[in-house]
Amino acid sequence: MSRLIVELKNAHKIFNNNVHALRGVDFEVQEGEVVALIGPSGSGKSTLLRCINQLERLDDGKLSLWGKAFGPRETIPKNLRQNMGMIFQHFNLFPHLSVKQNITVPLRAVKRIQKIESDEIAEEMLKKVGLFDKTNSFPHQLSGGQKQRVAIARSLAMSPRLMLCDEPTSALDPELVQEVVQVLRRLADEGMTMILVTHELGLARNRAQRVVFMEAGKIIEEGTPERLFNSPLHERTKGFISQVLR
């Protein structure tokens, strides 16, 4: 019996400019599950992801994490926030810190561990994403794919139990997408719970147990990748998939 770790009930988000980004979304993720969120831009999939770790606050509805419920005005505690790693479209590496420091500075600040220990973790994580030789480089010396792999290593160093990936390959040159996809694929194979907002339908098809199609702030339909990609029920899903796969 797997455990429910993320649950959104009737989630609403209205931005200051009156954009109604989420219109009553019900969404849940089981432990160990890999869920892909797809949909046209502006459909609310990134907002949905950002509401899970409260980068954006819900305006209405309920968020539950590992069984603890939070209303729109309740702040999730720091330890739960640390359980959720996040990968951004534009990497968001710290440009004034070396690759290694990008991992060790937050690690020491958050976990209050010794330098030796944080250095060891950083090296281990960099090996994991195949960038051990870039330990002392600075972000501006790396390619986009390398930057994203460092960002993944930085996030993994906090030993998260859930990874939120916000279009991790969208800002990459086409030839660099695969190196990042490979790292994410390996992560999925290791049993990491992941929510992927992605245009990389290959990754969604290969590794996701469930694909969720969103449009205009609502979940239109969801299902296994085979079912959703091969025989979408909804006209709009059909339209989107045929457009993207063309």
Partner: peptide, 8 residues
């Protein structure tokens, strides 16, 4: 945002 998600 990155620092926030890392738990800082």
């Amino acid at each position: 945002e990155a620092a926030y998600t890392l738990g800082m």
